[in-house]
Design a protein around this nucleic acid. Structure first.
Lengths: 179, 179
DNA sequence: CCGGGATGTGTACATCTGTACGCATCGCCG
DNA sequence: CGGCGATGCGTACAGATGTACACATCCCGG
């Protein structure tokens, strides 16, 4: 095959890697699978990302950036009229009502940080950044962190069980748990 | 090698599989690694667990049962004097102060259910059972589910960031988020 | 305009993996 | 006590994978 000049290739490889993880999970991520998905030769994926870890890091960086951008836009749209917990419950509901494949992908990469040392700082930064952004709304960091934890737990719970999401019950439940 | 009669072998293989996941993660789980860890020949692991999925399922079943037993004992020890949220915060603090390797292992297997169809019902059952047990204390299921989500999110947040756990701040933050 | 470094390409190789299979050996039930 | 099904054991094989490497080609700065 003739060599083709392709300045966007590195980016396309990252996109392809994310697609592979979305389709087959992290376990299915391989240089060859990514090469096929990006329609580039094997040597090209290993040139831009010498190890699989490099590829994983790039994928999580991009996914995190995308999520944080969405999250920031959502936070900017808040008017502060309702309790912050209600805002977060609405975000969770909207996210779960959207593309679950994408949410699952985001959590799979994000939680892989539990095992992969090189992913951990990325996940931690993403968590911190979410808390910082949310703190612009709640006014303080601990409240924001509690809400981030709550929303993560809710997302996982509903992704795992498939149970319908009931914001009012959860809100009332949380209130009851605090007295 | 002479054949040895070994009625507990199946159980030892499961234990070894859990050990392998603890050491190398799910990605490192293989019939051969488990065989070596359990000190049995390769054919023995494939005889008792024909596919890797079978092994994963058995491992998660056992880990979940262990966690639910601990959780049940903890719940039985509650006196109902404090708000349920404070009880849960104490549980999270105690768990994070204990063996983090074990907690990480539990979450890794548990969250693998996001990807593995055969693990999903196990994880969902574990979540439901936790909520049921906790509901004996809170009186209603939605409150229990909210608390389970909160605790899962907190555990993950602290496992990922390594930040010190501050129950009072989180409790106050959650209260503030609801008004 | 030209040379060197960046980028692209194809292939090779050692390693690991899941799984199958044949045979050995044992426990237990009839 | 005999045999048969459960269990144990070793090996074989095809396929996938990470990674290295040699070589081709192109862009861009001097």
């Amino acid at each position: 095959m003739a060599r083709r000049h392709d300045p966007e290739r590195r980016q396309r490889i990252i996109d392809a890697a994310i697609g592979v993880v979305a389709d087959r999970g992290i376990a299915g991520l391989s240089h060859r699978a990514v090469a096929a998905a990006a329609d580039v030769p094997l040597g090209s994926t290993t040139y831009h990302f010498a190890t699989l870890d490099d590829l994983l890091v790039a994928a999580l960086e991009q996914v995190n950036a995308g999520w944080l951008a969405d999250f920031g836009r959502w936070a900017d749209g808040l008017d502060g009229a309702a309790p912050a917990a209600d805002d977060v419950l609405r975000l969770v509901a909207d996210t779960l009502a959207g593309d679950r494949t994408r949410v699952t992908l985001e959590y799979e990469l994000y939680l892989a940080a539990l095992r992969h040392p090189r992913l951990r700082p990325l996940a931690a930064d993403c968590l911190d950044e979410m808390a910082r952004v949310l703190a612009r709304r709640t006014g303080d960091l601990p409240t924001a962190r509690a809400l981030v934890a709550f929303s993560d737990g809710l997302m996982l719970q509903h992704l795992l069980t498939g149970r319908p999401f009931e914001p009012e019950a959860l809100r009332d439940g949380l209130t009851a748990a605090l007295v």
